[in-house]
Design a binder for these strands. Structure first.
Lengths: 242, 242
DNA sequence: CGCGATCTTGATGCCAGTCAACCTCCGTGG
DNA sequence: CCACGGAGGTTGACTGGCATCAAGATCGCG
């Protein structure tokens, strides 16, 4: 995920964001509808605000970010997508995108056409409920981010983000012993937690100097997860609604 | 809505949040499943974080807020619900609440049991898509709030919130000539936009002194909507995804 | 009339933004 | 093999927006 080129993906299982139990039969059906796979370079735009229509897309590998730009040039990342998450359902829901999606690292994406999804839902309405639940799970993350940006200070926000990513990556099997790859620049982190790049840097250094986090070359080690969660006020309940 | 007691509701039509076109037949079906109606006093808790199960609830009258508390006592309101919006679907989705809901004014709520909704969806799967789209619309608002709290200053945030409420209330038929009732305290506003109550007060005074807003006794008048939108960088696209 | 909730105002301090410079790393091409 | 350039990370100095604390004014209501 952190390597410059996309490597073979570890698992073809589609997990719903964040980890939602998928019945074996359902997972098979979900995988069956992925027809095309596409590789995207880091920094490339996957979908753009205002797009009227298109395909259904699932992130298979890498990290992507939903974001919105302001007139003044500022950027706010409003969601981070991990392998297994849905990027777009806009082929199914007749809506325009209200935000853009960028590949934060190199990504592999599975896509399906609108017609295929319609057919799958017609055959198996329970799958629609599953997709809906995935939307709800993403909304829960969005709410928690709002709490962070609105009411937590720089240190708490950054710590909270790391706790969340650790939890979600662990659920995706992408975290071993509190080590994980995080292919985001400090500017990206700042655009997630609503800080300037400079202050993001100072905040990360503070986490390092407190012995909570080691973080070099895109590899993060949460050296004291319990203390980090305590600092952040992190409660994984919102990631685990079932 | 701003009156201390709940009055007869103006319309029984369930709109999906934010205004989503509902086919006439669908609206009839939706109304049919509302079996019980409940009045809630301002300040009362409608649902609580961690609730395991319950009924489906639709807000018929009044304003409600989704919120989360921090250990330190801070509160962040993560969504404002207007008449026609869904408050909970937790009887249908087998999930725990990740947040609480408070009646920001006195409210009238329509509820339905889990079994009834299951039956309706079984009879008419298209309705499930409609509910899902409503969830997506609420998520779009949540994303825009993240942009506000993360990247806009106090004046822009507050102006943006007023623009959004005006737009949504107008769609609900609750705004005439840019006047509307807003039964929120300045503390509530602060907990929405991530400011202290004191600074919220100063920000509102600045909007008043610029001739953009008149606001007394729970009645808001946007005196120059165009200028307010310009100041806030408000683009209603995210409220209008169809 | 009196009390509590809400709104308002002033003083003070700090958290985080901004600007500017420099450093390290790494890929590229001469 | 080294020069170069760009992206990302780091540091310092300074500023300012907003939090906090505290006190008073106003409003609504019993």
């Amino acid at each position: 995920m952190s390597s410059p080129t996309v490597t073979a993906r570890q698992s073809s299982l589609i997990r719903l964001c964040p980890p939602v139990p998928v019945l074996v039969g359902e997972a098979t059906e979900l995988e069956a509808f992925i027809r095309h796979e596409r590789l995207i370079a880091a920094g490339a735009e996957i979908a753009s605000e205002g797009d009227p229509d298109g395909h259904v897309a699932v992130l298979m590998e890498g990290m992507a970010g939903r974001y919105k730009m302001l007139r003044t040039g500022g950027r706010q990342i409003v969601a981070v997508c991990l392998p297994g998450d849905f990027l777009t359902l806009r082929g199914y829901l007749p809506a325009r995108m209200d935000h853009s999606i960028i590949a934060l690292s190199s990504c592999a994406i599975g896509t399906a056409g609108k017609g295929e999804l319609d057919r799958i839902f017609a055959d198996n309405p329970a799958l629609m409920r599953l997709f809906w639940r995935s939307s709800m799970a993403e909304a829960a993350i969005s709410r928690e981010w709002l709490v962070s940006v609105g009411r937590r200070n720089a240190l708490e926000r950054t710590a909270h983000l790391l706790c969340e990513l650790q939890y979600r990556l662990a659920a995706a099997g992408l975290c071993r012993g509190n080590w994980f790859q995080l292919p985001l620049t400090q500017t990206d982190i700042g655009d997630i937690v609503g800080l300037s790049a400079v202050h993001t840097n100072r905040t990360i250094q503070e986490l390092r100097s407190r012995g909570l986090v080691a973080w070099t070359h895109g590899t993060v080690h949460l050296r004291d997860l319990a203390a980090l969660r305590e600092l952040a006020g992190f409660d994984p309940g919102y990631l685990d609604l079932d």
